[in-house]
Amino acid sequence: MRIRPVATVAAGALMGLSALALSTTVAQAAPSGRTPVTVAHRGASSYAPENTLASIDAADRRGFEWVENDVQRTKDGELVILHDNSLARTTNVEQVFPGRSPWNVADFTLKEIEKLDAGSWFGPKFRGERVPTLEDYMDEVENNDQSLLMELKSPELYPGIERQTLAELRRAGWLDKTHVKRHLIIQSFNADAIKTVHRLRPDVKTGFLGNPSVADLPKFAKYCDQINPVHTAVTPEYVAAVHGLKGPHSRPLDLYTWTVDDPATAVKVAALGVDGIITNKPDVVRDALGGSDD
C-alpha cells in the first residue's frame, strides 16, 4: 500500500474544500440562482482542432449541448466554418498553395479548400480533418442533438452573408419553431449584421459580441437578445444593466461572456450572474461550477 505524504494529503483536502467553497459561492451569489450555460468555443477546441467536425464531436462526447462556430464565405460563394480570415494558421494551405499569401478564405474556392488538412496542426491523430462546409457542420450538430451559437465572422467582407446563412439554415431545417426557440443563436461583432438578421428573421435569437456602453444598451435591445462581452468587461453593474432591459422578444437580455478557460474566472463571472460562459475547456468550467453544461 502506497502511503501519501501528509503534505500531499493536506493539499488535496484543501483543494477539495476550495472547490466546494467556490461552488457554494456560485450557488449563493448568482442572482439568477442558475448555473450558466457552458458553450464549447469553436467546439471543444482544447481537445480537437477548432471549428471542425471533430471539435463538435469532442464536445458531444463530453456531454456538452451548446457549441460555437464561425461562418465565412469562399471565393465561389460557399459557406464554410473557420475562425481566421486566413487559412494559414489552422490548415496546410501554405504548403498546398504556396505563393498565394495571405491565404484568405475569400480568395479560395471550396474545391481548393477541400484539399486542405485542417487537423494536423493540432495533432497527428487529426490528420486529414477538413474545413467543414456549413451544410456538413449543421448535419453533424443535428446528428449530435446539439445546439448552436453561430458567429457571422467578418460579415463586412461578405455582402449578403446574413441572408445566405439564413437560407442555408432553412434548408437544413434549423429555422423551424423548435430549433429557433431552443437550439439557435446568431451573434456577431458587427451590429449591422445582427440588425439584418433580426430584420430578415425577427424570431431568431441574436447576440452582439462586445460591451456597448450602458447608455447605448437600449439601442442594442431593439434587435439583440444577448450582449456578449469579453470576461474582463463583466462587472456587477454591467450585468445588472443588461438584465434590466428587455430585448425584441420581450424577455430580459442575456449576457454570455468569453473566453473563460480557468476555474477561478468561471466561478467569478458565474457569481456575477452571467447567463452563459463561452470556453475552450467546457469540462473545466463545468467542474468549477459543480453542475451540468446547462
Rank of each mutant, 00 (worst) to 15 (best):
G77P: 10
M15E: 10
A30G: 05
P102Q: 03
V269A: 02
R182V: 13
Q187C: 04
L245I: 02
N144E: 00
T178F: 01
V180L: 11
K153Y: 03
G128F: 07
Y256G: 12
V67W: 07
D57C: 14
L157S: 15
G290C: 11
G160K: 06
V93F: 02
G63R: 15
R170Q: 10
T25N: 12
L82W: 13
K181A: 10
A288P: 11
D293R: 15
D261H: 04
A266N: 07
P5F: 08
G128I: 08
K111Q: 15
P132F: 00
D57L: 14
R182I: 13
D136K: 13
L134S: 02
P229D: 10
D107G: 08
N92L: 05
V197H: 00
V71P: 08
L20C: 05
E78K: 13
E151C: 05
K115Y: 07
S147E: 04
L217S: 09
K181M: 03
L14G: 08
N92C: 04
A44G: 07
F189W: 05
T52R: 11
R199G: 09
A88H: 09
G33F: 06
A241Q: 08
E162V: 01
A13P: 00
C224G: 06
S292N: 15
V67I: 09
C224D: 05
L209K: 04
K115S: 12
E112C: 01
L157F: 15
D84A: 01
S101V: 13
N280D: 14
L53F: 08
G276I: 02
L53E: 04
L20W: 06
E114W: 12
E112W: 08
D117K: 11
T24G: 10
T196V: 10
T24S: 14
A59S: 14
L217A: 10
V26N: 12
